[in-house]
Each structure stands twice: as C-alpha cells, then as structure tokens.
Amino acid sequence: MTVSTLRMAVRSPRRIALSQKLGRWDIRFSPYLYISPFFILFGIVGLFPLLYTGWVSLHAWDLIGGQGKFVGADNFAWILQQQKFWLALRNTFSIFLLSAVPQIVIALIIAAVLDQNLRGRTFWRMGVLLPYIVMPVAVALIFGNMYGDKYGLINTLLGHFGIPGIQWHSDPLASQFAIATMVNFRWTGYNALILLAGMQAIPRDYYEAATIDGAGAIRRFFSITIPQLRPTLIFVIITATIGGLQIFDEPKLFDQYGTGGANSQWLTLTIYLYNLGWGQLNFGRAAAVAWLLFLVIVLIGLVNLGITRRIASNEGRNS
C-alpha cells in the first residue's frame, strides 16, 4: 500500500483532481473488484448450502420428512460416540496417506523428467494426462476387473506364479491400497502437469549458473527446483489434502454396494455421511459429519501449510 501511495503522490501534481481520485479508487478498489466474482457467486450458490447444512446439523432432521426439533449439539455428540465414525476417520487418513504421498512424489518425478529437453514433448505431456479423461464408469469397471478377489486380473496373474491371491475386498489394508491406486491413477499425471507448469516458470539461468558452479542434477533439484517451486508445491499439497480427505468416488465404486465394505474396511467419512443421509435418511447426523469433516480438513490443511512452508523455505535458505 505505502509504495503505491507514494508513487501516486509523486505523480499527482501533474494530474487533475478527478483523475487523481479515480486513480486512487482504481488502486484501492480494483483488487476487490477482481476477486469479487468468486465471492458473489459463492454468495449465490455456495453460502446458502453451507449455512443450510449447519442449520440442519443442529436439528433432528429426516431427509424426506424435513426439519424436526432443535437438538443443539446432540447430533455431534452422537457421532463422536460412534465407533464407525472413528473407524471412518482412521480409514480416511490411511487412504489419504496411501494415495497423497506416493502421488505427489511420483508426480514430482514425472514433472522433473518432462521438464527436460525431450523429443516429442507434446506427446508425453498429453499422454500423462490421459487417465484424467477416462469416465468414472470405465474406471469402476476396469478396477473392478483388476481387483476381483477370484477372477480379477491381478490375482489371476499371481496365480500363474503360484502366489495365492490377495483378498482385495476383505483385507482392510489391501482394499485401502487398491482404492489408493485408483486415486493415484487418476490424479498423478494431473499433478505432474501442474508441477511441470511451475517448474517451467523457473528462470533457466538459475540452472545454468548452478551448473557452472558445478552443481549436479540432484543438487540443482533440491536447491533450485524445490524452493522455487514452493507456491506450486503448496498448491498441490493443499489440494491433494483437501481432495484426499473428501475422497468419495473411488471407495463408492469399489464394490457393488458402495457402503464401505462388509466390515467397514474402506468406510471413509464421506461414505459414512452418505450412508447416514441417504441410507438411514438421517440428514441431521449426516450434516454433523459433514461439519466435522470440514473441521478436520481445515485443521490438517493448516498443519500441512505450516510444514510445507517450513520445508520449502528451509531448503531455500540452505542452498
């Protein structure tokens, strides 16, 4: 603020009062004007659902029957006493870790590789994005066939080598691993391209200078790429966290019922809230789970942001 005010003060004597005023308004209000479309639209289509859900969570509310009596925090208290809720929270985290960590690491590798002076650049770049265009119905079918416990592709292959098949659906870890694979399949190439865009924006002379100083590829990667990439990395990590904790499609599609498994092996929080809301028609409790999930995500997001900032800036300082 001070810099631009100063600059204006310097220029102002040559301007007439009106344009001076307009210029000041321009500087003061333009930033708000530019971000306003988001907030206006959010006010129209986003805010109401948010408040509505909050209102619902404080009531006994049947999905179809509608609003019942005000119950305060009862829905929240009930949820927190449910073993299923904590199980779903645990599963959500474990699927999130199984997917987000390898996803970002592999995306970074792919991006670094694509950042080179490759032959057929367009081909490779568009190629890694292909999984993202496959429609969910095909994804469900393909992974359903791969992870079939008896006739699935993977277990059939293992069978050829005399290895007993993996119980993809009944074993909690195996089922969560399978779901994480589905997530990673869809999002790794996508994140790789985002990271690539960030990498491409790093001035090339930084690398040339480092090379002249005798830095090897790895050293260049950690002391130039990673710190310079910080804003993009923060973006990828935050969105992967938010998306990962809200994971819904993949566990929903993982079996024919979509309710999280016979022993809740892959019951996630979003599936749990769906089961409560649309299975048991208890909209009040479902809304409470939605709010709890929201709080969890914000909490983890903040922790993540802190860690990412620290890592990225330490790297920067060390170099």
């Binding site: 359903g144 079939g148 008896k150 006739y151 699935g152 659906h169 024919q256 019922y257």
Partner: peptide, 12 residues
C-alpha cells in the same frame, strides 16, 4: 462365496 452382484459373482 462370491458376493452377489460383485464382478466375481458375474464372472463366476
């Protein structure tokens, strides 16, 4: 032991 409506059930 093939759960009804699963891909395994259809393949079975």
């Amino acid at each position: 032991h093939l759960t009804q409506w699963s891909p395994d059930w259809s393949a079975g």
